Simulated scan of single mutants.
Amino acid sequence: MDLASHYNQLFSDSKQAISTNNYVIDFEIDSKSDHRFGITLLIRPSEAIKNKMQSFLNELKELEPSQYYYPNSDIHITVLSIISCHDGFSLNQINPEQYIAVIKENMAILNNLEIEFSGITASNSTIMIQGFPSNDSLNTFRNSLREAFRKTNLQQSIDNRYTLFTAHTSVCRFRKPLANTTKLISVLEKFRNHDFGKFEVNQLELVFNDWYQRKEKTQILQQFKI
Rank of each mutant, 00 (worst) to 15 (best):
Asp2Ala: 06
Leu3Val: 07
Ser12Gly: 05
Ala17Gly: 08
Ile18Asp: 00
Ile18Trp: 13
Asn22Met: 07
Asn22Val: 09
Ile29Gly: 13
Ser33Asp: 15
Ser33Asn: 15
Asp34Val: 11
Ile39Asp: 05
Arg44Met: 10
Ser46Pro: 03
Asn51Gln: 04
Glu62Trp: 11
Tyr68Thr: 04
Tyr69His: 02
Ser73Arg: 02
Ser73Tyr: 08
Ser81Gly: 09
Ser81Met: 02
Ile83Ala: 01
Gly88Trp: 08
Gly88Asn: 01
Pro96Gln: 12
Glu97Asn: 15
Glu97Tyr: 14
Ile100Trp: 12
Ile103Gly: 10
Asn106Val: 00
Asn106Arg: 07
Asn111Cys: 14
Glu114Lys: 09
Phe117Tyr: 10
Ile120Arg: 08
Ile120Ser: 04
Asn124Glu: 06
Asn124Arg: 06
Asn124Ser: 10
Phe132Pro: 01
Asn135Thr: 03
Ser137Asp: 09
Leu138Gly: 08
Thr140Gln: 15
Arg142Pro: 05
Asn153Phe: 15
Gln156Asp: 03
Asp159Ala: 02
Thr163Asn: 09
Leu164Trp: 11
Val171Pro: 04
Pro177Phe: 13
Ile185Gln: 07
Ile185Gly: 07
Leu188Ile: 00
Asp195Asn: 12
Asp195Phe: 03
Gly197Asn: 04
Phe199Thr: 06
Leu204Pro: 04
Leu204Ala: 07
Glu205Val: 03
Glu216Ser: 11
Lys217Trp: 05
Gln222Phe: 10
Phe224Cys: 06
